[in-house]
């Protein structure tokens, strides 16, 4: 029984059509709340972790242990005067942050979340091609960054946008090829090998053990997609002021900020689903959601450590890394996966 059925059973007195429509709406609202809460927790975690690693204390004034700091920050951003640059390209400028943020929220809808005792299956939507859908949505987000860069009519924003496009293009291909290897291996065991959930449920060993190269390539590609150090080309704060978000203030800036942290969280969830067994854990499958979250948070902390301890790569060397190193080894990974699947029957 999934959460959709669970909500419907409460609303069943309304009849089939209205009941399911309402259940879907409520489910979407739950998703939005989940995403925003997890983003707030992410930002709080980041600030605390960064502070402790840098031998500081971090936010501790608003609320107990500074827990309300993020809400205060959000209120401050919302209360700020919205300043529009004079020579902006109006529509792209205004739309860009929403493209980035809602693309991100959409991607969360297609992740399989596993079970949580009484609620049953927490997955929001089922799709037989959910992998393709998630990566299609992920490639909408760079478009938002480009729109922001071009719409701002600002040299720093334009350069930031161009850099981030160069970065995204050169890391997209190795990422997709390493996902392809997984789909290939899963297709030996399941008919719906593009469905993220059936990939995870039918695996014997986590794919990270079978394809460590794939795990490495995919993790680096997710770092690049989330664009933090060493790949924060879009921002480059010591060179390009603040990159594509230079001209943004208030809530629109907040959406870009949330987009960054959301991508880190999404990336960690994706890595743990594809390579580390996702909601499968050593103890009973009734708490799959907890396993997923634990794996996700550990990966998030690793990503933060990478962020805090790495300098920025120069843009031409970054493109080199993408095309000259990651692409060949992701092909090697693909061949190895083929050998494992066809030759050894794993």
């Amino acid at each position: 029984m999934s959460i959709l059925q669970w909500i419907y059973s409460v609303l069943s007195f309304l009849g089939h059509d209205v009941g399911y429509a309402l259940a879907y709406i409520i489910e979407s609202i739950i998703l939005l709340i989940f995403v925003s809460i997890s983003l707030i927790v992410m930002v709080y975690l980041f600030r605390k972790y960064m502070a402790r690693v840098q031998q500081r204390i971090g936010p501790n004034r608003v609320g107990k242990f500074g827990l309300l700091q993020l809400i205060a920050d959000a209120l401050k951003l919302a209360g700020k005067e919205v300043i529009f640059p004079k020579e902006r390209d109006d529509l792209p400028y205004k739309v860009a942050p929403f493209v980035v943020f809602f693309g991100l929220v959409l991607a969360f809808a297609f992740l399989p979340y596993g079970n949580l005792s009484i609620f049953g299956d927490l997955t929001i939507t089922y799709s037989d091609v959910s992998i393709i859908f998630i990566f299609a949505i992920l490639s909408i987000m760079p478009i938002g960054e480009v729109l922001a860069g071009i719409g701002s009519h600002n040299k720093y924003a334009l350069m930031g946008a161009l850099r981030s496009v160069a970065k995204d293009v050169s890391f997209e291909v190795p990422m997709m090829i390493s996902v392809l290897a997984i789909v290939m291996m899963a297709s030996a065991r399941t008919a719906t090998s593009l469905n993220l959930e059936s990939i995870v449920t039918t695996e014997i060993l986590p794919y990270g053990i079978l394809e460590p190269i794939g795990l490495f390539v995919f993790f680096i590609a997710m770092i690049a997609r989330a664009s933090y150090a060493p790949f924060d080309m879009g921002e480059s704060d010591s060179e390009l002021v603040s990159g594509y978000s230079t001209e943004y203030t208030g809530l629109r800036f907040g959406l870009f900020y949330m987009g960054l942290f959301g991508t880190i969280f999404l990336g960690s969830l994706l890595v743990s689903l594809l390579y580390l067994g996702g909601f499968n854990g050593p103890i009973s499958s009734q708490v799959g959601f907890i396993w997923l979250l634990v794996k996700g948070i550990v990966l998030v902390l690793i990503s933060f450590t990478v962020w805090l301890s790495m300098p920025r790569i120069r843009i031409d060397k970054l493109v080199n890394v993408g095309w000259k190193y990651l692409l060949p080894i992701s092909f090697i990974n693909l061949v190895l996966a083929g050998v494992l699947t066809l030759g050894l029957g794993w």
Partner: peptide
């Protein structure tokens, strides 16, 4: 110099 290159942490040390 670390901050110039985008390295956040050594600055504090």
């Amino acid at each position: 110099y670390g901050l110039d290159l985008g390295m956040l942490t050594p600055f504090f040390y």
